[in-house]
Nucleic acid binder design. Structure first.
Length: 295
DNA sequence: ACCCAGGCGGGCG
DNA sequence: CGCCCGCATGGG
């Protein structure tokens, strides 16, 4: 059991982050959430006893080669519990809109995900919706992830880049990846040969983004998602259709702004924690359907 | 049936 | 640089 301050598991896993796409989770009744995370070492099964509250008691069990300590560390890291949320809120609570968003989404954290897992998830995400992203990732896991038997049940690990690079574009399309199949193929191949994703940890945000964007199918937005949720570079500010509309509406009186101008705005306003601000803008924009009435 | 979804690359002026 | 287009596919 872990006691976590300022944490809401439901919000954190339902806000379209990679752990949502690649883990099994479901609501049981109205207050229990489950998260099953399978790694090479074994399986971690998380349930939160409390929901919609400022603090959570996180119950979890584990099997395989995890020890109690390593499992707890995995849970804390992956759920973003290693960050001081109060400090982050102090930085991003710059106005009434953000203040409302923080109140409504209190305890939502940016999760910490494996870089390759994050890369694949956001390649799949482009011009797609969250429900279908989840469906496609689940198919890729079942089709290309190494099989593991734990507790008499069969699980699949998240597919490696090597595994996916052996597939043809046509085979990848059978999982519903559509026009993204060629990007997945290309990036998987690069990541299993000449590109070591680990190197981006050591680079600063700007340099890492520049190099990520050289990969096929990774543009401005996907690169920022990878850097934010895969490397926890909080200067990243992914701009999707939601964020663009929310920022234009809330901060520019509805006037159209370029991607470049929005990046500059975010950097000036939330410098250092743009990514956290983005997660709150994204989720509150979606919930309130801000900008749904476009021409 | 039609519309849209956590964009991107390529072609154009 | 900005603008516009096509792109695969499942769910509303």
């Amino acid at each position: 059991m872990i006691y976590a301050n300022d944490f809401n598991l439901r919000l954190s896993i339902e806000s379209g982050q990679p752990l949502t796409f690649s883990s099994d989770y479901k609501a049981v009744g109205k207050k229990l959430e489950l998260l099953t995370y399978v790694t090479q070492k074994g399986r971690i099964h998380v349930e939160s006893a409390k929901n919609n509250s400022r603090d959570s008691i996180i119950n979890f069990d584990y099997s395989g080669d995890y020890t109690r300590q390593s499992a707890e560390r995995e849970v804390r890291t992956r759920l973003g519990l290693t960050d001081d949320l109060q400090e982050i809120y102090a930085k991003i609570n710059t106005d009434q809109f953000m203040d409302n968003a923080i109140s409504a989404l209190y305890g939502m954290r940016v999760t910490h995900n494996d870089p390759w897992e994050t890369t694949l998830c956001f390649l799949v995400s482009q011009f797609n919706n969250i429900k279908r992203i989840r469906l496609i990732i689940r198919r890729l896991i079942n089709e290309y992830g190494e099989e593991q038997k734990l507790d008499g049940e069969v699980f699949h690990l998240f597919p490696t880049s090597e595994s996916l690079s052996r597939a043809t574009v046509q085979e990848l399309m059978k999982c519903g990846t559509g026009f993204r199949a060629k990007y997945i193929r290309s990036v998987a191949e690069q990541c299993s040969n000449n590109v070591d994703l680990g190197k981006f940890y050591k680079m600063n945000y700007a340099k890492a983004k520049e190099e990520l964007m050289e990969l096929d199918g990774i543009g401005d937005k996907v690169a920022d998602c990878i850097l934010l949720m895969g490397y926890n570079k909080y200067e990243a500010f992914p701009i999707d259709t939601w964020i663009k509309r929310v920022v234009e509406r809330v901060y520019f009186k509805g006037r159209k702004k370029s991607i470049k101008a929005i990046h500059e705005f975010a950097s000036r306003r939330w410098g250092g924690f743009e990514g956290y601000a983005q997660q709150y803008l994204f989720e509150s924009g979606r919930r309130n359907k801000i900008g749904k009435m476009v021409r």
